[in-house]
Amino acid sequence: MRAYKVYAIKDGTVIDHIPDGQGMGIIDLLNLRQWNRTVTLGIGFHSKKHGKKDVIKIEDKELTPAEVNKIAIVAPTATMNIIRNHKIVKKFNVELPETLEGIVKCPNPACVTNHDPVATTRFFKENGKKIELRCAYCERYFKEHEIEVI
């Protein structure tokens, strides 16, 4: 049985193939506890590709591009299913854009973005298999585990 059918939703988003254990983080990242409709978190679903996975279903919400980008950082394998009237109308893999504006905090304490009130962070995606970002300001490279989403 497909995960999204366990508790089928009429309209909204199903975030599937979240790496095992990351689901809770995404709930907080997207501030979903504040969402005034039902949000379902499934932990430890069987996944053919990844062994185990988490699944989140959000009723009556289609995610913004900025929200999808945040998910791409913490759950690069996630797939998005947009549900309208019980049908999947759109399905896509999350993908990090080339430039991330105002989404990630620079881990470098000497970076101007951590000191100047008008500075918005900007990061560039580096080419490679693993997630790696470069700060447009201090020009340092950061790996996935160092990255903190704002």
Partner: peptide
Amino acid sequence: RHSLEGSARL
């Protein structure tokens, strides 16, 4: 010249 990294870019 400024001690913060990225200050000139900003």
